[in-house]
Design a protein around this nucleic acid. Structure first.
Length: 564
RNA sequence: GCGCCUGUAGCUCAGGGGACAGAGCAGUGGACUUCUAAUCCAUUAGUCGGGGGUUCGAAUCCUCCCAGGCGCACCA
């Protein structure tokens, strides 16, 4: 529809003596398709022309009659000038384009190979991969795919939480209460139990906290015993995480965790001190950020150990040196907003002009109805449990509805995983989510299975059709067909808007709308049963819709089964 | 206390300053000898948290207030 919008802008602009871009940005999508596909409110013209908006609209509509290739008609309706697209022309262009470009439809080279570093997922070693980590993982993965589709060169980094005081805690817990067998059998859950146990014990024995800090300091100082334990914890956890990523179909270019920057921390702190932006305070090293309206940021503890911020600072500098990114996105929970404001401010103080290319992409918390999830208190839900239940449910539904399906397990996985991912991607990421088993396991309505089901239905039609004639003529005659064609025309824009706002939910919503349009079409327009020329035309529409559904789902990291 | 985020139908949420505010779920009633009923159709439902303001026009922008959430130096 972009071409149509541009066309409208260029025919209207000269008539009212505006810049084309100005008209373009003023065009809007009417609340009802009855009022056309784009409309131009004439209120702003009223003052310049000293006429009533309605009259201006009427006059302009007269002057515009018969213009444009995509323009079917123009109407003045009250103060609005309504433009109607010619669905026939649009269909001919868009369907041909989709069927030509296939999996590449919607891709572009707009990003001209600029580098975008995306930091996402970043689970803590020593903590289970909970449902809370899902958001960063799927949103980051989707942004990676969307930006790559727009021609950016993406670098996905999993900034593992593999360093820090929690390892001191874990080492202490393991030394006190641990044994090798539990660690061997189910390392992540075992470490998690130790972690919870530590916090429970520490309530009565605060000296444990001190002991944990001591052990982390030993770790940073290269103590052999601490390092051996740390390495073992890290390796076992990482192996499990990788299994989860594999299952989810999420990839990273690098697993550079916090510990990766260890040998750069001293140099980083030296630089900070050299630039004279830090000061000693109560034995610790802090950077004052008053000029940014922020509280001071601590970079070194009084015992000499480093902090999260220190490692993030080193990481940011390393990444710029290494990749010369045009943007760096941190897909991290909104509760860390202050941390990133501080981090970016320190980069500014250090004189890095690229500091402004760093962006925090925040998202809301996943909460229990009763309150926040807390790893420390053992209140968390394992991602694997959620995914397993979703896949099981999908399998059960397949067994009922399509018992003969051959690759049932495979399809159940695509549907179950898709449902979980989509649940997280379809709403504005900034909002908190109340965790609800019933909702997350609901496969009807605005869900991934709904979209996948539409895709499978089309596949079924195409399978039975005996082939699609690419040269067939399109005949767009029903309201359902018109609506479907127009929605197909909006695909590219939905990707661009999703990228611009860093919101995969915009693309997710689009796909829901497309699937809805298709299902309406499906119910009201027979494809295989239609007379031959109409049948050919509708098969083309089906093939195009199928392609766009699959392409769009792929950008969200969700599969599109041929049958389900 | 200070800062940030959120507040739209019973529930979960869409809503790109503009035309009577829209979906999904739940409820009710319909549609499978016809391309997969994980679908479709119909129907009920709202002081867009509240008050001011900017604008020809505000759910959308500004401001104050209320409610919930999240942060605010040795955690990440």
């Amino acid at each position: 529809m972009l071409r149509f919008k541009e066309e409208v802008a260029s025919v209207l602009a000269p008539l009212i003596d505006w810049e084309k871009e100005e008209v373009f940005s003023r065009l809007e999508i009417p609340p009802d398709s009855e009022f056309g596909d784009y409309s131009f409110p004439c209120f702003p013209l009223a003052r310049e022309l000293r006429q009533a908006p309605a009259r201006i609209a009427a006059e302009l509509s007269n002057k515009l009659q018969g213009k444009g290739r995509f323009l079917k008609k123009v109407e003045g309706k009250g103060p609005y000038l309504n433009f109607y697209v010619d669905e026939q022309t649009l269909a001919e262009r868009i369907v041909a384009e989709i069927l030509n470009e296939k999996g590449d439809f919607g891709r572009s080279s707009a990003g001209s190979s600029e580098v975008v570093v995306i930091d996402y997922s970043a689970p803590n070693i020593a903590k289970p991969f909970g449902i809370g980590h899902l958001r960063s993982t799927v949103i980051g993965d989707a942004l990676y795919r969307i930006y790559s589709a727009l021609g950016y060169r993406c670098i996905g980094i999993n900034h593992l939480g593999d360093w820090g005081t929690q390892f001191g805690k874990l080492i202490v817990a393991y030394k006190h209460w641990g044994e090798g067998k539990g660690l061997q059998d189910d390392p992540v859950r075992y470490l998690y139990e130790l972690y919870v146990l530590f916090h429970r014990e520490a309530e009565d024995k605060p000296e444990l906290e001190e002991e944990a800090r001591f052990w982390f300091k030993k770790l940073e100082d290269g103590d052999a015993e601490a390092l051996t334990l740390w390495q073992r914890f890290r390796e076992l956890s990482l192996a499990e995480f990788k299994r989860v990523y594999e299952y989810l179909g999420v990839n990273f270019d690098y697993y550079y965790g916090e510990s990766f920057y260890n040998d750069r921390l001293d140099a980083t702190l030296e630089m900070v001190q050299q630039k004279n932006i830090a000061r000693e305070s109560e034995g610790a090293l802090v950077v004052d950020l008053e000029q940014f309206g922020l509280p001071p940021c601590l970079l070194r503890k009084k015992d000499g150990a480093t902090l999260y911020a220190t490692r993030d600072l080193a990481a940011a500098i390393y990444r710029y040196e290494e990749y010369r990114f045009s943007q760096m996105l941190y897909v991290v929970g909104a509760e860390q907003k202050l941390h990133f404001q501080q981090l970016f401010s320190i980069l500014k103080l250090m004189g890095y002009p690229w500091a402004k290319k760093c962006k925090h992409i925040p998202f809301g918390l996943i909460r229990f109805p009763g309150g926040r999830m807390s790893t420390r208190q053992g209140k968390t839900i394992f991602l694997e449990d959620v995914v397993n239940r979703a896949v099981e449910l999908a399998e059960k539904i397949i067994a009922e509805k399509n018992p003969d399906l051959e690759n049932r397990k495979e399809v159940a996985k695509i549907v179950g995983v898709g449902a979980i991912k989509f649940g997280d991607l379809s709403n504005d990421r900034i909002k908190d989510i109340d965790f609800d088993w019933e909702k997350i396991l609901d496969f009807s309505g605005e869900t991934a299975p709904y979209i996948q089901y539409s895709h499978a239905r089309i596949f079924s039609i195409l399978r039975k059709s005996g082939g699609v004639l690419a040269s067939a003529e399109l005949r767009i005659i029903t309201e359902e067909e018109r609506s479907l064609v127009k929605t197909l025309g909006f695909y590219a824009e939905s990707i661009e808007r999703a990228a611009e706002a860093y919101k995969p939910s915009i693309l997710a919503r689009y796909l829901i709308n497309l699937a809805k349009d298709f299902n309406r079409f499906y119910h009201n327009c027979s494809v295989l049963g239609a007379e031959e020329s109409l049948r050919q035309s509708r098969l083309l529409l089906c093939a195009a819709t199928k392609q766009v559904l699959a392409n769009g789902l792929d950008l969200l990291g969700i599969g599109a089964p041929e049958e389900m």
